[in-house]
Structure formats: C-alpha cells, structure tokens
Simulated scan of single mutants.
Amino acid sequence: MHSKVAALDLGQDAVTLTAHLVDVPSESRQEKALADLVEQALRGVPHLRVDRDGDAVVARTALGRAERVVLAGHLDTVPVADNLPSRLDEDGLLWGCGTSDMKAGVAVQLKLAAGLAEPNRDVTYVFYDAEEIASEFNGLKRLAERHPDWLAGDFAVLMEPTGGRVDGGCQGTLRVEVRTTGRRAHSARSWLGENAIHKAAPILDRLAAYEPRRVEIDGLVYPEGLNAVLINGGHATNVIPDFCTVTVNYRFSPDQSERQALDRVRDLFDGFDVLVTDSAPGALPGLSHPAAAAFVAAIGTAPAAKEAWTDVARFAALGIPAVNYGPGDPTLAHTREEHVVAASILEAETRLRTWLTA
C-alpha cells in the first residue's frame, strides 16, 4: 500500500488516476494523506495558484476572464466495506470504495486543472474534506466561513455522481429525535412501570401513514421522504424502559425553508417531544440562470432533480448558482458494490473540457 501513496501522476488517464485516488483511503476526518497528494500535484502546475485550509485544497487560474466557474468535489468517503483496493474488471467497471462517490469526479477535476492552461473561463478547483458526515465538519462550510473569496464565482459545478446528467438543486435534510418517556420497573412486575418503547408505537404509525409530497419546480420533480432511521430505548432485558428515542430524517423539497420543514415535522408529531439534531437547507434548481443554461446545453442531457442533499446548497447560500454533474451512478454510493463505468469518467472529462475550451 505504501507505493500507492506515491505522488499523483496527473499525466495518467482519468481512469487510472481514479484508481490511484481510490487506493488512498480517505474516510471522513482521515483525508490528510490524500489532501497532501492533491496539494503536491497541483503545486507543480505552473498556471495555478494553490491554497490550503486544513484538508481542503483550492487551485485557481487567474487569466482575467469575464466569467469564473467553480468545480468542487469532496475527498472523503464513507467507511471502507471490504472494497479496497480498487479493481478494474474485463467489462470496464472500476470497483472500490469511493469510485462513484466521488473520486471519479475528483480525478476529472485534477485532469482539467493540470491540462487546461488557457480555459475560456477562469476556473477554481475545490477539493474538500468531511462531506459525508455531520455538516459541522464539512470542509466547504469551513471554506465559506473562513475564505469566501476562495469560492467566489459566477457558477459552480459540484462533481457529485449523477450518471452523467445535470441534476438541478437538491433536497434539504432535517434530522430530529422524537422522544417518549415512561417509568422504569422490573419486567416481572411490569404493571408497576410505564413502557416508553410501547409509547413509540404512534410515532411509527404516523410515519407509516405519511404520504410524501412530490414537488415540481421549474419542470423538475423533487420526491420527499420522511423515515425513521434509528430507534433507541431500554436498559436491560429484565427492565421496563423509561425512555425511547426515534430518530427521523426528513428529506424535503427545496420549495420549503428549514423552518417550514421543521414546522411540518412538529405538526406530524404533535404531542411528542421533538429535538432537532441536524438541519441543512435545500437549493432551488436555478437552471434559468444564463451560466447554468449554457452548461446544460453544453452537456447535452436533459436535467433532473437531485434526489439527495448536496453542497450545491452551500453555493446557493453564497449567491452562486450551482448544479450537480459527475460520472458514476448515485444509487451505488455508500454500497459494498460501489463501482463506476470507466468510460463514463472519460466522457465526463471530455464534456467538461469541451465546455471550458469551446
């Protein structure tokens, strides 16, 4: 493995470069080794200015073009699931943790950064940490707070896996704990207690009966989801539990603010104690913006709604219209079977290169 962390060769084709990136483990909060390699490789490119904050690396051209675009991608992955090292099979599939989400996109960024000395727009390439965990750790969030000038631009492309299409906007996400309490007792004398887990049954009933909205915005349909994702309660197998917590995740359409989403959840669980543990806004598609429309036309595929939360929301908060676009199937993200079609990596590189040079 030690030989795998040798310097990145940005002259390699994007598929080989993706495999190299995948073979450098970079679970969230453990991205330093990969960030070091990215920084080292980009500092060797004469037409780029390179800055670093923590394990985030930002490289920029400064050609005085009329428009600046931002290409952003995260370096971290979810925990490895016995799916390293990478493997390229005879069918042209590259397997391994992070292949789809999103080291294929990062490889494309690196190829463009190294190869485009005279793009038709100034370009900022952002490689950041801790996207896959709680938003408080997110490297793009940190950059927006500490160095908003590093992220300045007229348009942004987040290189999340989209299957090679343009995905507009993103869902918002809200996590709450819905709590019940009871009275602890010996299970042999359960009538002396009050079972908090039993009290959680109406919470699950309301979730099962809930009909998620499907919201159309600018021709794109955003399906919502409201689900229990964790449940915790009890002390021991011979004790009537006096507490139970159901963690609920609401993926809401970007037509709602965080406040409106929370109000909807609190209305649903009226009568229960609801505690917010994490929240992030969605982002409207913004495809009518001239830069976004030009990008969609250049990519040449029909846009769709992003059925997830992504950091396009952070760019939207900065007043920068943004879309998701990248190689890889988003439905394979975080799975043991994660892989990417090698040809899709090369196709994404070609389309972006054409957009930045035509």
Rank of each mutant, 00 (worst) to 15 (best):
residue 244 C to V: 01
residue 245 T to H: 00
residue 245 T to V: 14
residue 246 V to S: 04
residue 249 N to K: 00
residue 250 Y to C: 04
residue 251 R to P: 10
residue 252 F to Y: 15
residue 252 F to G: 08
residue 253 S to K: 07
residue 254 P to G: 10
residue 254 P to C: 11
residue 255 D to K: 00
residue 255 D to V: 02
residue 256 Q to S: 13
residue 256 Q to A: 13
residue 257 S to P: 00
residue 257 S to C: 09
residue 258 E to S: 13
residue 260 Q to N: 04
residue 262 L to W: 01
residue 263 D to C: 02
residue 263 D to I: 09
residue 263 D to V: 14
residue 264 R to Q: 15
residue 265 V to L: 13
residue 265 V to M: 09
residue 266 R to A: 10
residue 267 D to E: 15
residue 267 D to F: 02
residue 270 D to N: 12
residue 270 D to A: 14
residue 270 D to E: 15
residue 270 D to W: 06
residue 271 G to T: 11
residue 271 G to Q: 10
residue 273 D to C: 02
residue 273 D to W: 00
residue 274 V to A: 10
residue 275 L to S: 11
residue 275 L to Y: 05
residue 276 V to Y: 04
residue 276 V to P: 08
residue 277 T to F: 07
residue 278 D to A: 14
residue 280 A to P: 00
residue 280 A to F: 03
residue 281 P to Q: 02
residue 282 G to V: 04
residue 283 A to R: 08
residue 283 A to H: 08
residue 283 A to G: 10
residue 284 L to V: 11
residue 284 L to F: 03
residue 285 P to A: 06
residue 287 L to K: 08
residue 288 S to W: 11
residue 289 H to E: 15
residue 289 H to R: 14
residue 291 A to H: 15
residue 291 A to G: 09
residue 292 A to L: 06
residue 292 A to V: 03
residue 293 A to V: 03
residue 293 A to I: 04
residue 294 A to L: 09
residue 295 F to C: 12
residue 296 V to S: 12
residue 296 V to I: 15
residue 296 V to D: 10
residue 298 A to R: 06
residue 298 A to N: 07
residue 299 I to L: 09
residue 299 I to Q: 05
residue 301 T to D: 15
residue 301 T to C: 09
residue 301 T to E: 15
residue 302 A to P: 05
residue 302 A to F: 04
residue 306 K to D: 03
residue 307 E to L: 08
residue 307 E to H: 12
residue 307 E to G: 07
residue 308 A to Y: 13
residue 311 D to S: 12
residue 311 D to I: 02
residue 311 D to L: 04
residue 313 A to Q: 05
residue 313 A to M: 06
residue 313 A to E: 06
residue 314 R to H: 04
residue 314 R to P: 00
residue 315 F to H: 03
residue 315 F to T: 01
residue 316 A to V: 08
residue 317 A to G: 11
residue 317 A to S: 14
residue 317 A to Y: 02
residue 317 A to K: 08
residue 318 L to Q: 14
residue 318 L to F: 06
residue 318 L to N: 10
residue 318 L to T: 07
residue 319 G to L: 05
residue 320 I to T: 15
residue 320 I to M: 10
residue 321 P to F: 12
residue 321 P to W: 13
residue 322 A to P: 12
residue 323 V to L: 08
residue 327 P to W: 00
residue 328 G to F: 01
residue 328 G to N: 10
residue 330 P to M: 02
residue 330 P to N: 05
residue 331 T to A: 14
residue 331 T to F: 08
residue 331 T to K: 12
residue 334 H to A: 05
residue 334 H to L: 02
residue 335 T to Y: 01
residue 336 R to L: 10
residue 339 H to I: 11
residue 340 V to P: 00
residue 341 V to Y: 00
residue 341 V to H: 06
residue 341 V to I: 10
residue 342 A to F: 07
residue 343 A to R: 13
residue 343 A to T: 14
residue 344 S to V: 03
residue 344 S to N: 08
residue 344 S to P: 01
residue 345 I to N: 05
residue 345 I to V: 15
residue 346 L to F: 01
residue 346 L to I: 13
